[in-house]
Design a protein around this nucleic acid. Sequence first.
DNA 1: TTCTGATTAGTCAGTTTTGACTATTCAGGA
DNA 2: TCCTGAATAGTCAAAACTGACTAATCAGAA
Lengths: 170, 170
Amino acid sequence: MNDRLLLLGLLRREEMHGYQLHEFIDRELAFCTDLKKPTAYYLLNKMTSEGWISEETAREGNRPPRKVYSITPAGEAAFQQLLRQNVASFIPSRFPGDVGIAYLDALPPTEALGLLRQRRAQLQLAQEKVSTAPAHRGSLEWIVEHQRRHLAAEADWLDEIIEQLEQGLK
Amino acid sequence: MNDRLLLLGLLRREEMHGYQLHEFIDRELAFCTDLKKPTAYYLLNKMTSEGWISEETAREGNRPPRKVYSITPAGEAAFQQLLRQNVASFIPSRFPGDVGIAYLDALPPTEALGLLRQRRAQLQLAQEKVSTAPAHRGSLEWIVEHQRRHLAAEADWLDEIIEQLEQGLK
DNA sequence: TTCTGATTAGTCAGTTTTGACTATTCAGGA
DNA sequence: TCCTGAATAGTCAAAACTGACTAATCAGAA
């Protein structure tokens, strides 16, 4: 339902067509969701048939006609409800990367260390990307801050594992 | 692929049937994945047809026969490969709860505060659950620690948002 | 003007996931 | 003994998701 909320929220600001929506999400909100293009269209169709948004075919210049979506009153109501639900609930995160940590003892310690250092390097890149990101305005800044803190915690934790492994080797 | 890795890793320790696998994951590793039952069976079938595991029908007592899965040499090879891949890569997390934060300004500040406090309370519960969890042995302890740190970062962040909102109200 | 690669806009078939259900066995009380 | 609720062991149809593709337009180079 969170992807629906995301789409509704964007359509609430201004009507858009599918490609535009996906483009925006992919460019500006990549750190927040990774809604794939076909999924976006799927949800737009779904919400249209649910009456949350309405589609209107628009031709601009001599480009082929596009479907422009705009939010309906029912959609606005759904938005209000979904928003409250989202804000009021804590959704626990799963970390698929933990599976590998759980089985770390199946690996020779030296190799494990090398692999973990690779993971650490990628994490570093992610941190740099966030810290050099252009300042977002308003509440988006909180989300960037969220990401920043999460990555920092991640780095601390990984460093500790790496250090413990190093201790074990000596 | 991480769910496959998880299943292979368990089957590596001892052969099991589907229900047993799902039970174990659901009880012991709930903070790590949330592999649903039908998904587990789906993956077991898939991996059987890929030759990673083999199934053997076993009857015990007068219970109906069950399929017992055990890992094959090809499965062990796949495990080794998937494990290295998993350990060596940092998988960025997405936080669906951020969508609500992004649209927080669509809500009256007082109501937003109330909803955020609800979220905070649920987070608190999750933290208590982790801290009272029985000590896991070996590398599982790292995963619990991961969760602990992640939740702490989450709490700090939420508290700051709440405080900023409170400031804005005064 | 014609070609090439990038951008725009979207679709489709196949894969994966899941909510809801079935069916058997077991433990204990009436 | 019979009944009931919990635990065991799964299945199935429907929903959701995605990799790979199509197809039109446009901008600029040759």
